[in-house]
Amino acid sequence: MSESRGRFVARQPDPSVNVSDTHPLAEAGVLFAGLGAVFIAVVIISVYLVDILVGVVSIEREAQWFGGLRYDEIGELMEGARITTDHAQHEQTVALLETLTEYWPDSTYEFRLLIAESSVPNAVALPGGTIIVTSRLLDDVESENELAFVLAHELGHFHGRDHLRRLGRLALISLIYNATIGAGGFAPNLSDLSLRSFDRQQERDADRFGLELCAAHYGHVAGTGDFFRRLDPGSRSVVNRYVDTHPGMTERLADMTAIAAEQGWPETGPLRPWNEPTTMDAQP
């Protein structure tokens, strides 16, 4: 460079102007905390919004939407189990269900009881009034009282319209979630997990309703907890307690005992046999 233009002094440019000096972890902390709070708020608002919406959907409308589920569609929901009514104890179980629904006269549901061939003892309430019990459950139950409570518990879900609530919440939150954080590549099950404390409350309410029907029918609640007692896997970790859709079995049994004591329902009484040809409507 020419001397006449003045001495040129080479300097390095200041590199800091193009990079913010916020620490990346501070940025991460603010974003996670802020958006986490928003997400929790959205979950809570959605739950209440859906509760309002569920009240608007009539049971007839619900049956219209979901009542026509085909066996193969239900089977897919039940992990591919074969759905049937062709089972030795089907009629007997339907009769028990009908007996129990007599203690819930306000119900406008038309219940449909189906059996899923499965080696896992379970019962499920599906929108539209469909109750599924697994063949293993029917094989395992030791008394009619035990099965009655399982069925009454599922009726409790219809009473609270829980399946519809759950469906609505999941749909709404998945929608919001996928539109936002889901695009960032984070866990899609997070929304499902954040709803599970609500699920556990629904289970408790369904247990209460189930106990009420059993107490009304049998005059006591003996045998109602047998199903859980057999399933009890022992103590649960904190993680499990957060993840589970149902309360821990021990906790649940304690809750049930408390409800029975509070309502004055005797916890002991004669159990009616199941699977033995002594009941009036036994199979030939």
Binding site: P24, L35, I181, G184, G185
Partner: peptide
């Protein structure tokens, strides 16, 4: 991955 997630969250607001 860190930058992507943080930027993804930033993209929301």
């Amino acid at each position: 991955y860190f930058k992507r997630i943080i930027a993804g969250l930033r993209g929301l607001i």
